[in-house]
């Protein structure tokens, strides 16, 4: 239901904007646009020994997109390129009804988005940008 979509925990996550900003010397940068709704995410990562040691993102988008980007900033440190790529698919399956992947319990906040398929892209966009930026850096 729409009433559940904007629960306080999700609003707080978006407001916290974990990882918002830019990196001085990123190893990988990806810009992703959602042509349907206009959301735009620029994701930057720095790697150490093949794993993400720093993340920064700039988001022009809706609350769902901003909350998802904040979640990437909260838990994305330590992933390697393969894990970042796998995460993108896991988020998609979570939106389709599977339980959230291990280490990402806050993805459950997006459960009410499930019936709103036109909003799935808003949640996925930061994860797609993370996978692309990490792939570029690897």
């Amino acid at each position: 239901m729409n009433d559940d979509l904007y629960q306080k925990a999700l609003l707080d996550l978006a407001k916290a904007a974990h990882g918002a900003g830019s990196l001085p010397s990123p190893d990988g940068t990806a810009l992703r646009d959602s042509p349907l709704c206009g959301d735009r995410v620029r994701m930057q990562v720095a790697l150490e020994n093949g794993r993400i040691k720093a993340i920064a993102h700039e988001v022009k988008g809706c609350l769902l997109c901003r909350a998802a980007a904040s979640l990437v900033g909260l838990h994305g440190i330590g992933l390697d390129a393969a894990q970042a790529e796998a995460l993108r698919g896991q988020v998609a399956t979570t939106l389709a009804g599977s339980p959230p992947p291990s280490g990402w319990p806050e993805l459950a906040l997006f459960e009410p988005v499930r019936p709103h398929r036109n909003r799935h892209g808003c949640v996925l966009l930061p994860f797609e940008a993370l996978a692309a930026a990490t792939h570029e850096a690897d």
Partner: peptide, 28 residues
Amino acid sequence: IHPHDACQVLDAHGVAVRGGHHCAQPLM
């Protein structure tokens, strides 16, 4: 408030409006 979020809340009130860049990003 992002237009799509406003539209989503309005939808719950039974109101259908258009939100977004209207495919006119230069104008936005």
